[in-house]
């Protein structure tokens, strides 16, 4: 695998993952196809795409929390070499939150309004770990709150007494309750002010360094990915559009979708510049176009694009893009 040139074995290794949504009598919808990436310990990977690109499905697949209609059809998800897709429900439940935790978007909905924040964090610990000593539990809650920058005196308060930023910090504390290796952050700063967003991103960056935490940052916003992530996986219509290190994505993107996303991004230092919107919307999974899924919105379509979904081409060993235009620069198909 070209990007496995990093010397350490990866913490998380996802390969050729295919997921369907079944809704008989309709034919199954291809929600994910051929998703392949790795995550090192202490690394932050950004998973980027518009709504409906399969980001959420991917996340839920990693946690094996797909809705009833979801089927993992093929592929493998290995955590420290252990195949997660072979684990039974009990083993998977034991691993969830202790090794892979999640920060949900919309902290107001994810917190229970009638219990104090301290209680909710304590419960997250108790549910996954055998802590019976009340004092030890209390100490752990205080440590966690301190870690995310909430004064321990506020643990007895209820979520409504917290501001939006504080609630998101509390959610992060809950995710860290069992010292996980990987934290999946699903749009962690949506609906927050830019200043609070900057605080949360700073917090995540600090935690990552302090705790050697691996972060999967799932978002539609390339701006916050640039702030936090080492590598970026751009998804479109359930497939990988582009996968590379952050600098390459932002300065040498090979996939037209990545390029379009970047052009749609407003840059305050260039006030006069007009934004280039991406016309249309991502394809519905039940109604995929023939050939490359991006053809209906792509500015560079040629005949071949309508014939098949392009495979992932390795532009360089650590840079892959699923666009026929990348083929000429690469040594051949990667996947």
């Amino acid at each position: 695998m070209p990007h496995a040139i990093l010397d350490r074995p990866p913490l998380l290794e996802v390969s050729h993952l295919d997921v369907d949504y079944v809704d008989p009598p309709h034919p199954p919808a291809a929600a994910l196809r051929g998703i392949t990436f790795t995550l090192q310990r202490g690394e932050a990977l950004g998973i980027v795409g518009e709504s409906g690109c399969g980001k959420s499905t991917l996340m839920l697949t990693l946690l094996r929390l797909l809705p009833a209609a979801g089927r993992i059809v093929a592929g493998s998800v290995r955590l420290d070499g252990v195949e997660l897709l072979d684990l039974d429900a009990r083993a998977m439940a034991a691993l969830r939150w202790k090794r892979i935790a999640m920060i949900f978007q919309g902290a107001m909905n994810a917190l229970n309004p009638v219990r104090t924040v301290g209680e909710q964090i304590a419960e997250a610990i108790r549910r996954h770990e055998d802590v019976t000593n009340r004092r030890a539990l209390d100490r752990r809650v205080s440590e966690l709150l301190d870690l995310v920058g909430i004064a321990a005196s506020r643990r007895e308060q209820y979520p409504f007494q917290y501001s939006g930023g504080m609630r998101q910090r509390a959610m992060i504390a809950m995710a860290l309750a069992c010292s996980p290796d990987i934290v999946i952050a699903d749009e962690p700063t949506t609906a927050l002010d830019v200043m609070i967003q900057a605080q949360i991103l700073q917090l995540l960056a600090d935690l990552r360094r302090q705790l050697q935490l691996s972060i999967l940052l799932v978002t539609h916003d390339l701006g916050i990915v640039a702030e936090l992530c080492d590598r970026v996986l751009v998804m479109y219509g359930g497939v990988m559009a582009e996968y590379a290190d952050a600098d390459t994505i932002y300065n040498g993107a090979a996939h037209p979708y990545t390029q379009a996303l970047l052009q749609a991004f407003p840059d305050p230092t260039q006030p006069a510049q007009k934004l280039a919107a991406i016309p249309g919307a991502p394809p519905r999974l039940t109604d995929l176009p023939p050939g490359c899924r991006f053809t209906p919105r792509c500015p560079h379509v040629f005949a071949r694009c309508h014939t098949a979904q392009p495979p992932l081409y390795a532009v360089t060993p650590a840079h892959q893009a699923s666009c026929f235009r990348a083929e000429t620069t690469s040594g051949g198909a990667h996947a």
């Binding site: 199954p28 094996r64 929390l65 009833a68 059809v73 093929a74 897709l85």
Partner: peptide
């Protein structure tokens, strides 16, 4: 968002996923 939440909170664990269980003809 409220509707979405009820969906996720009732998400069931899916029965043992297998790579052999692939439905033919969808690749």
């Amino acid at each position: 968002l409220a509707a979405d939440r009820t969906l996720t909170s009732h998400r069931r664990l899916q029965p043992a996923p297998t790579s052999e269980g692939a439905t033919p003809g969808n690749r």
